[in-house]
Design a protein around this nucleic acid. Structure first.
Lengths: 193, 193, 193, 193
DNA sequence: TTTT
DNA sequence: TTTT
């Protein structure tokens, strides 16, 4: 009921890839999104126009995750409100790694027609959705240490849906959209997202 | 002048340790702070009271950094507004690592007497400070890849801010963020902050 | 379930007077608060230090209202998050008037000991509270036109708890904390709050 | 330089009418905009779908005002960040009136093609603009009491106070907010904006 | 009407 | 590592 301190993030940006939606074993929908925000400014020294893009890893749960999976696409412009959360996980060498995500509790689509590079969007201009309770996701994401380095942005299971199978990849039969097994992911050992 | 997208963070929390303030070779003040925000809620299943603390790495530049270094202490309660920024750096194995920070552009002290466990605070209740321009810090923090795993929260130079201490850390006179050879930091190889 | 557009206000300030808490006929707790935020800056022309205080009318409902009534006092420092809402009402000449309020959905006490000029505060430093659902207050505040010019900050019934008594003043027997009947309020006919 | 307290508003909505841009006698550009945000929810009692639109009066100064005047149109979808400010003015009976506005310091266009019902928009998807200093507008809007009831929503009827009167409105060519002599404005005596 |  |  109570909250001590404020932890609030507000983003407006575009999806870098299609959302990855999956379900936890307990049936909770989870969607991961990579969101770009860009700053541009003129360098005072050189007078050059500068631009930097910041990529944000955003996680949605429950109904919000389903809406994200259904309506958002690569390129979609969205408003996201949420809170910062840093997860700890271990890479394949057993070393601790940290990934900071925005756990969304509100989302608004800012495109007229879904914005992405794919059609079939049913929403209008600026449809918005909220998520009630705090600590979403059935608590499984509050977890401390996770053994799974795989994450959004790769064709690999997400850390949000950890699976400790040795050979890497997704155990068959799991309600996960990620492609299964047998692929070499050694190239991205250190990539947190 | 222009900004595409919104990237905004609002935090109210307490400092976990005293701020680390230093100056870049070009004379820009930089302060690092570790800020805790806590959520508490009652678990619906067990009825148990739950609490989770989230730690945020916050970076201040210029005048804001000086104020932080002067007035904030471990335990201080502050309001911080800023933007999210993920830095890439390499650990000693040459592997890419990422650290997400809040680059502050506004700060307000929310203690009556500095709040920390140390006295000597000159501020009153709720003194506030803002920072004008965007991309602060002379641009050096916009950098892409950094070689330096050292960070705030350790008695070691931060990647943001090399310090010239003799006994380990940064070699004197080295105007860069690279780790100075010869000191043992193996204990924190994987700690991004 | 859906929201179109974003309407968000974030305030940190001090109460100008004790909160006014009352209950609607249907039993919903309502608290009104007058919150001050101040800007200070140096005038570029004259070099003079300038200060301006902005007063905000904040409304709390349900549990949040009860907490406000119990723990906040004149002088208390609080964080408030909510949405803007403009109410229309009619003055005694039947002319339309408008009052803009912040309908709070989150509140955090930022004092160590309640901060106000009155004791008996049970909270600690930074106790926080949220309110779940949107459109709070049982919907009665969504109302269009209200006949009641009385408002917070006066010893008079609030527009939030409208009562259409002809002679002005509070009808006896209503579950309202405001002082009842027989007082002259003609002097503030045009004051919206 | 300092700010005591936080006074922040974040809106995403659509313009109800074309912006009204003008210049103060000292040459400061000022743009007024009426922005709609809508909430929709399902009534718990009746199960009926409910919707409410909130209208916000937003003021832009300087460069931001010029951009608004040039690129925004009725229907445009925008992100606005600013602070709340309540102005006091007197109606023709000498009675004090109050109008609450959002003084914008950041604006982002969220349409692909300006969104409004008029073409000619040069911006892309999500062009953003900020305004540096605080107290914008040359200080004239910080004023305490203003004698001038004229505001946005005249020359062009505001959605808040629509009046399609032919003879009313602002005298043409008058590039300021001062009351135009000898014109009948009795019809909107009580309209604060 | 607050706060510094 | 903070705070309650």
């Amino acid at each position: 009921m109570a909250t001590r301190g404020i932890n609030k993030v507000i983003l407006i940006g575009n999806l870098g890839v299609d959302p990855e939606t999956r379900f936890t074993p307990s049936g909770v929908a989870v969607a991961n999104v990579s969101l770009a925000t860009s700053d541009s400014w003129r360098d005072k020294q050189t007078g050059q126009q500068q631009e930097r893009t910041e990529w944000h890893r955003v996680v949605f749960f429950n109904r919000l995750a389903e809406i994200v999976g259904e309506y958002l696409r690569k390129g979609s412009k969205v408003y996201v409100e949420g809170r910062l959360q840093t997860r700890k996980w271990q890479d394949q060498n057993g070393q601790d790694r940290y990934t900071t995500e925005i756990v969304a509790n509100e989302m608004q689509m800012l495109d007229s027609r879904g914005g992405g590079d794919q059609g079939g969007f049913g929403g209008g201009q600026g449809a918005g959705f909220q998520q009630g309770g705090q600590p979403q996701g059935g608590g499984f994401q509050q977890g401390g240490q996770q053994q799974d380095p795989y994450a959004q942005g790769r064709t690999a299971p997400s850390p949000m849906a950890p699976s400790n199978q040795p050979g890497g990849g997704q155990a068959p039969g799991q309600p996960n959209q990620a492609p299964a097994g047998g692929f070499d992911n050694s190239f991205d050992d250190d990539i947190p997202f």
